Amino acid sequence: MHTDRTWTTTPVTAELLRGALDLERTARGVLPHRLPARARAQCTDPQLAMAESQPSGVRLVFRTRATAVELDTLPTKRVYTGAPPRPDGVYDLLVDGRLHGQGSVSGGATLTIDLTSGTAEKREGTPGTVCFGGLPARMKNVEIWLPHDETTELTALRTDAPVTPVQDDRVRKVWLHHGSSISHGSEAASPTGTWPALAASLGGVELINMGFGGGALLDAFTSRAMRDVPADLISVKIGINLVNSDAMRLRAFTPAVHGFLDTVREGHPDAPLLVISPVHCPLHEDTPGPTAPDFTSLSAGRLRFRATGDPAERAYGKLTLGVIREELARIVAERADGDPHLHHLDGRELYGEADHLEMPLQDGLHPDAATHRLMGERFTKLAFAAGGPFGEGGS
Score class of each variant (00 low, 15 high):
A333P: 08
R251A: 15
S395E: 09
S117M: 07
L48A: 03
M226N: 05
L176K: 09
R172F: 01
G301E: 09
G118T: 11
D246T: 10
T26H: 01
H177K: 05
M375A: 00
E313M: 13
I208K: 07
V275P: 05
A252R: 12
A109H: 11
L94M: 09
Q102L: 11
L382S: 06
L298N: 08
G203W: 02
V257W: 02
Q102C: 08
L217P: 08
L298T: 12
E327Q: 14
E24M: 08
Q42K: 14
T151Q: 15
G193F: 02
W7A: 05
H2A: 13
H148G: 04
K140I: 13
Y351I: 04
A161D: 13
P11Y: 02
A383C: 08
L321I: 14
A383R: 07
P272I: 06
D232M: 10
T6C: 06
L135S: 04
T112D: 01
A120M: 14
G133I: 11
G179F: 02
M1Q: 13
V61Y: 00
D4Y: 05
R38Q: 11
P32E: 00
H280L: 08
D168L: 13
C281T: 15
L94A: 04
F132I: 09
D262S: 13
T26W: 00
D339Y: 04
V142P: 06
A333W: 03
D346P: 10
T129V: 15
R335C: 11
A41C: 12
T192C: 05
R138A: 12
